[in-house]
Simulated assay, not measured.
Amino acid sequence: MNFLVDVHLPISLSKFLSKQQNCSAIHVNQILQKWHTPDADICKYADENNIAVITKDQDFKNSHFINKTPKKIIRIALGNISNNDLILLFAKHLPILIELSSIKKVFYIEINAERIIIID
């Protein structure tokens, strides 16, 4: 599975994901205009490269449901969380994220403290 970690999330998350089997990850700060990259360009880049956007940003959720882009989105619906706790949360849910990505071309996933929500 390929991931693009949004600017408001730590680079350490993309490094963690890159070390996982069958995963690759980049941070927004490593592509295009780095942290200045507009959301529309991030969406286009993700869709063209079959990458799931990981974000905390509500705007990406709105864009997914209204404009159908980005096609694959994983939204972190938590307040402040330590980088370590965020990585542990992803480690816990990574198997289902990888499985879902292999069978779905379009998805919206929301992860909060209690559960993972998948909306088709």
Score class of each variant (00 low, 15 high):
Ile96Glu: 06
Lys104Thr: 05
Gln20Lys: 10
Ser82Met: 05
Ile66Gln: 12
Leu13Arg: 00
Lys15Ala: 13
Ile81Val: 12
Phe90Arg: 03
Ile103Tyr: 08
Gln21Ile: 13
Ile111Leu: 04
Pro95Gln: 04
Asn83Pro: 12
Phe65Ile: 13
Ile119Leu: 13
Ile98Ala: 04
Asn112Ala: 03
Pro70Lys: 01
Asn112Val: 03
Gln30Glu: 15
Val106Leu: 08
Lys19Val: 08
Asp57Asn: 08
Tyr108Lys: 05
Leu9Asp: 02
Ile26Lys: 14
Ala113Val: 04
Ile81Tyr: 01
Gln21Lys: 10
Lys68Asn: 10
Cys43Leu: 01
Ile98Gln: 05
Phe65Tyr: 10
Ala91Trp: 10
Ser102Asn: 04
Tyr45Met: 15
Ile66Thr: 13
Lys72Tyr: 00
Ile116Tyr: 00
Leu97Gln: 03
Asp59Gly: 01
Ile98Thr: 05
Lys92Arg: 10
Ile96Arg: 10
Ala113Arg: 06
Ile42Ala: 07
Ser63Ile: 14
Ser82Lys: 09
Asn22Gln: 13
His36Ala: 10
Lys61Arg: 13
Ile31Thr: 02
Leu89Tyr: 01
Ile111Arg: 00
Ala52Arg: 01
Glu114Pro: 04
Asn80Cys: 09
Gln30Pro: 11
Glu48Phe: 11
Ser102Lys: 06
Tyr45Lys: 14
Asn67Trp: 13
Val53Pro: 00
Ser82His: 07
Phe16Thr: 02
Thr37Ser: 11
Asp85His: 11
Ser102Asp: 02
Asn49His: 08
Asp47Thr: 03
Ile66Glu: 10
Glu114Cys: 05
Leu94Val: 06
Cys23Asn: 07
Arg75Ile: 14
Arg75Tyr: 11
Ile54Ala: 03
Gln20His: 11
Leu100Tyr: 05
His8Ile: 15
Ile74Gly: 02
Asp39Trp: 05
Ala40Pro: 11
Leu78Pro: 04
Leu88Trp: 13
Leu86Met: 07
Cys43Trp: 01
Pro70Ser: 01
Asp41Val: 15
Trp35Arg: 14
Asp59Cys: 05
Asn2Ile: 03
Ile66Tyr: 15
Ser14Thr: 05
Asp57Trp: 09
Asn80Trp: 12
Gln20Gly: 04
Asn84Arg: 15
Asp57Thr: 08
Val7His: 14
Lys15Asp: 10
Gly79Glu: 07
Ala91Tyr: 11
Ile81Thr: 09
Asp85Ala: 13
Asn49Ala: 03
Asp120Val: 09
Ile118Thr: 12
Leu9Asn: 06
Asn22His: 11
Val5Pro: 07
Ile111Tyr: 01
Lys61Pro: 07
Lys34Met: 06
Asn50Gln: 05
Ile76Glu: 00
Ile73Trp: 07
Asn84Trp: 13
Gln58Phe: 05
Ile111Ser: 00
Asn29Leu: 11
Asn83Leu: 14
Glu114Thr: 08
Asp47Gln: 01
Ile73Cys: 04
Asp85Leu: 13
Asp47Arg: 00
Lys56Cys: 07
Ser18Ala: 15
Gln20Glu: 08
Ile98Leu: 09
Asp59Trp: 12
Ala77Glu: 07
Val28Tyr: 01
Val53Ser: 00
Asp59His: 09
Ile73Thr: 04
Ile98Phe: 09
Glu48Lys: 14
Ser24Gly: 14
Ser12Pro: 13
Leu4Trp: 08
His8Pro: 09
His36Met: 14
Leu86His: 03
Ile109Met: 05
Lys104Pro: 02
Ile73Ala: 01
Asp41His: 15
Ser14Ala: 12
Leu88Gly: 12
Ser12Glu: 15
Asp120Phe: 09
Pro10Val: 15
Asp120Leu: 13
